[in-house]
Design a protein around this nucleic acid. Structure first.
Lengths: 167, 167
DNA sequence: TTTAATTTTCAATATTTTTTGAAAGTTTGA
DNA sequence: TCAAACTTTCAAAAAATATTGAAAATTAAA
């Protein structure tokens, strides 16, 4: 395997993994490309390397910046904008945990809480609905608390904590 | 909020959450419906309650069974097949962890390993590719080990472990 | 067997999501 | 102020994904 093959393999694997996690292919591929690029890249660079349109590149870069895992950079004397990704995988994981908690977990917990507070009326249907949504709520809540713990800690806390747990 | 409202809210929230996790809407809704149903449901029941076609129901039930979170049941004297979901949320979490490890994490780890073993050639591009894929590999591998630890443990281990970590 | 009940399959269709590309917008230097 | 360099927006087109429904397959009782 040479450099080009390895690079393409990484980008396409990361791209299809993205789809599975609710992030679209182009977005995940741009992230992958920036992740392994030693220098910041311009929009032109990205368009060319991934063979995608200007509009697509622009929109997905913005989303990646919204997620807090890609940043704009300006080279002095250049009008063009350049982009880099968060290179530290620990920080990347923290940032992803933070955003997923905010976007998915918290809203779900809210709904589960509302539903599980339904007035009991004695029917088996109502009983089961309350029981199950309570159980899901508790699990989601524990998970969210954990994720926020992770978010609040320093760099190496994640690995340390996981390792501790494994032993 | 009455029973019907609460039920619909739960089913639709669970359904849209599914999409975000790489599971389609119908599949997630069928799971939600079974999750809160005190009795096993037939295909007819599911079709009617969710207003989806027979084919759709059949295919998605199969997928849920492949994930190991929905089961067939036979009522004696009846030819029709009935379905239930795994009702224990701990067991549900374990099963999902197991399948996600198998379907996504392990294949990704394999690719990251291959790519990060690329022959070093001194260029910054190659250096960065190797460095970053190694870092991602290590994190994914730690996570997978953890998930397998979870899978191998008894019911309440998950919560206990998480709680321990939080303190 | 044969028949009726039930489930599965899959090509066609519908829906949703992503991508394009050109026009509009913005920024900066002359 | 103008104009060139660059970015963003968004309607239309393309691609991907999900859904339908009817025919084929399966199952089990008569």
């Amino acid at each position: 395997m040479n450099y080009e093959e390895a690079k393409n393999k990484f980008i396409s694997t990361w791209g299809s993994l993205g789809t599975l996690w609710g992030i679209n292919k182009a977005m995940a591929q741009i992230h992958a490309l920036l992740m392994i690029s030693p220098e910041p890249l311009s929009m032109e660079d990205i368009m060319e390397q991934l063979q995608i349109s200007r509009g697509n590149t622009s929109m997905n870069l913005r989303q990646l910046m919204d997620w807090g895992i890609v940043f704009k950079e300006n080279k002095m004397g250049e009008r063009k904008e350049y982009f880099t990704s968060e290179k530290d995988v620990q920080e990347l994981a923290r940032q992803i945990a933070k955003e997923r908690s905010r976007r998915e977990l918290k809203p779900t917990i809210k709904v589960l809480n509302e539903v599980s507070n339904l007035q009991e009326d004695g029917t088996p249907e109502t009983k089961e609905l309350i029981k199950q949504t309570k159980a899901l709520h508790d699990m989601a809540d524990t998970l969210d608390t954990l994720m926020n713990k992770v978010i609040g800690h320093d760099h190496n806390w994640i690995t340390k904590a996981l390792v501790k747990l494994i032993k």
